[in-house]
Design a protein around this nucleic acid. Structure first.
Lengths: 199, 199
DNA sequence: CTCCGATGTAAGCGTCACTTACATTGCGAC
DNA sequence: GTCGCAATGTAAGTGACGCTTACATCGGAG
């Protein structure tokens, strides 16, 4: 790859994904402009369309890799844990780590309508579903005696707590409320406690 | 108002807000185009700028009215309840009602960066803060013995559960998982239960 | 009645995603 | 080897968007 002959780029597709990833991490989904990417990569504005149907297709690829990363982080957290309770807590922590460590990517994955779109590609839907399965798996393993409905209910309500806290914090809705008598670390543990509480 | 002399509109400002509100309810914040609104109202594309600094200022006005509505819904719910526990549950239900009843408006209020913006006007920040106070008030009233940190923690984690569920549902992240053995109504009550559980 | 501030218009700028017609290249078939 | 074709690039243009500037029109206060 990376052979430049003055006309063909070498591996424009990979370069576009990398540049888009960087832009998403730096400024979220809205910071991605195909024109900008093309200019940065020294290529015409029409070139990206040889590799992606459009802006959404490129963003879908970036989001898909985010979901893949998330699923792998879940798997690592669960493999490293000595018992199912710890595994569940560390799985939740992996979600928080992605959300607060790469907020731009998180916004793309969970704040955009890409996954919701009618023409969402399998390459996006599959990793997204796999990530959810990773969460679900941890909830199920933490209480093998629970029936299906219970596990689903716990997974959904727990995920809601975790996800809601993240979106509220990132939307700056808790500014001035998170501090005062509560430290941020205390609050984070409180959120984890509520997230994991069985019922 | 509404005097049309062929040149001046009569009350363009109010008409713009109403049209923007309708567009937001119909298709969310992204569905609002100043050009479209101007065309619909039979006015030039530059006219809206006589009444709003730009697109964000108009959307801020719509969002502000949403927060005002939310705060009033809280107040009504609390006034109608016979005891503080019921008041808290009905306050939470009011949040769900706005979210699921007017998803486009909810997305504008909590999914956009308007409130977060550095130049957010007081006319938006004040109703937003007031709405949060309405939630907080209900949590505090439900347990008068609790200290400040406890009330804050409960309000934040509870709101997180509620808010996260809404955003996950509206992002279609729970499609196929909400149904199976769980009815949607059951799940909603489960979310409310988890939201309101003191600790 | 006259002037002036409020409110409108016409025209245009720069950016965006995307399309179309054409140019260049590497590579496998022969 | 070279020929032809598919892959990959370019140049130019379309239409929508937010926003700005210079000018036109109107109603009401003096």
């Amino acid at each position: 790859m990376a052979k430049r002959d003055g006309y063909h780029h070498g591996d424009l597709r990979a370069a576009l994904i990398a540049a888009a990833q960087a832009a998403v991490d730096a400024g979220g989904p809205d910071a991605v402009s195909l024109r900008d990417l093309a200019l940065t990569l020294g290529v015409s504005t029409a070139a990206p369309y040889r590799h992606f149907h459009g802006r959404d297709a490129l963003l879908s690829e970036v989001a898909a890799r985010g979901f893949t990363d998330l699923g792998e982080a879940y798997a690592r957290a669960q493999a490293a844990a000595s018992d199912p309770q710890t595994a569940l807590r560390e799985t939740a922590r992996a979600y928080l780590t992605l959300a607060f460590g790469r907020p731009g990517l998180f916004k793309l994955m969970f704040g955009s309508d890409l996954v919701n779109a009618a023409d969402a590609p399998t390459s996006l839907l599959q990793p997204a579903a796999a990530a959810w399965e990773g969460l679900y798996r941890a909830v199920a393993a933490a209480d093998p005696a629970a029936d299906l409905a219970t596990v689903k209910r716990r997974a959904i309500t727990g995920w809601s707590t975790l996800h809601g806290f993240i979106t509220l914090v990132q939307g700056a809705r808790l500014k001035g409320f998170m501090t005062e008598p509560l430290t941020e670390a205390e609050l984070l543990e409180a959120v984890l406690d509520k997230t994991l509480k069985p019922d």
